[in-house]
Structure formats: C-alpha cells, structure tokens
Amino acid sequence: MGRLLIKGFIGNFLNSTYRNIKVFFRYVGSLAILLFRTIFWMFIPPIRKRQILEQMNNIGVKSFPIVFLISTFTGIVLALQSAYQMQKFSAEMYIASLVALSVTRELGPVLTALVIAGRCGAAMTAELGTMKVTEQVEALETLSANPVQYLVVPRFLALIIMVPLLTICADFFGIMGGYLIGVGKLGISHGMYLKMTFDPLALKDIVTGLIKSFSFAVIICVIACFEGVHSAGGAEGVGRATTASVVRSFIMIIIADCFFTALFYFIMAK
C-alpha cells in the first residue's frame, strides 16, 4: 500500500515536472521564433529612424538618471562593504581592483539590465498589450503594416544599442562610487586608486560585460514584446502580461548571466 502511494507520488511528480519542462521549452521556442522574425524584418526597408530614435530616447536617455544613481551607490556600497573586511589585513588599496572588476564583469551589466527590464520592458508590454486588446495591432495589419516590423524592430534596435551604452555608463559610475569612498574616506591616494583600478582591468573584462548586456537587451525586448502582443482579456490581461514580462525577464536575465559567466570562465581559464 505504502509502496503504491510512493509510486503514485513519484509518478505525479515526474508527470508535472515533465509538463512544466514542456511548457518552458514551448515558451522559449515561441520567444526564439519572435526573435528570428524580428531579425528578419530588421533588414527589410523602410528603416523607421524616427521611431528608433524615439525609443532610444525613451530607453536610453530617460533611464540614464536611475542607472547613474544605482551604479554610483552600488560602487559606494561595494567599497564600504569590502573595506570592512580588507581593513583587517590593511589591504584597502585592493578595494579599487575589487570594485572595478566586479562592476565591469558583473554588476554593471546585470543591474542595468534589471533596471531596464523593470522600467522599459514593463512599459513596452503595457503599451503593446493595450494596443493588442484595443485591436490596434490588427488595425496595423489591415493597413498593410507588419506588426513585428512596425512595433518590435524599433524597440529591438533601440534596446541592443542603448543597454550596452548604459552599461558602459554604469561601469564608469560604479568605479566612481568606489573612488569616492576609497579616496575620500579610506585615504587611498588618487594615483594609487586609479592604478589599482586599471592595472588588473583588461579589455576582456569590459567586453565580456558588454556581451552579457547585449544578450540581456535581446532577452528584455523579446519577452516584453512577446508578452505584450499575446496579452488578452482587457485591462486585467494587460496587467497580468506586464507582471509576467518583468518576472520572466528577471529570471531569464539571471539564467543568462549564470550561463555567460560560466562560459567565459571556462573559455578564459584555458
């Protein structure tokens, strides 16, 4: 009897796991299809310069203040927290290297992506979702415009340009934040701080960070647009799609981050 129960339990567990995995891969497959369609339509004229610039302004310029704030404070906190330990070994000057490396390799790209997913990804889903439920997406089709080309491509281009650029800014301001604490509070000299920042920092650290941020931009765009144009059921549906967009973007960004970090670790280790 007990055996049967356990068997049933394991069977149910495996069954639901199998179903969830299937749902997950179906979702990723749909995202991949949208991505391929976006890339296809990207090369078909007309290029909508005005819309791309508008999106770049929305995503890049308007997100700059919050990226500035978050990266500067992260730099400050990172320096302070590491000072807490490093002071025990009188190794404060290594704080500069620690801040520089962790910001460029990890925190800059990830924090920027999370901020953009929350700020712009959610807005995109809400906008496209509202367009979908008020039949504007279908209206586009009846006016011979392809919704992917008209709605997704400008957002895609704006994101893959602006997210890496914002990441460079975040790298810079993160290091600045560390500098403020290192030089202002811990008494490291200006020259020493800069030397300890740039000596260990190789181009590959920045480049791997940018590769990550590029892939995060793709993830944000595809998930936000997919959730938007597949939302249904009025205002409630748009709300649900927006939540799903942010949550799924966050999850995929973290998974992708883990994947790329491991990949670069093994490639660089060789």
Partner: peptide, 14 residues
C-alpha cells in the same frame, strides 16, 4: 490589403 479599408468596433486608432 491595400484594396481594403476596415473600421474596427472601438475605431482602433493608434
């Protein structure tokens, strides 16, 4: 579709 015009229920203006 260039031969078509369509008026939607909620007008569906952009």
């Amino acid at each position: 579709r260039m031969n078509f015009g369509m008026l939607f229920q909620g007008a569906a203006l952009f």
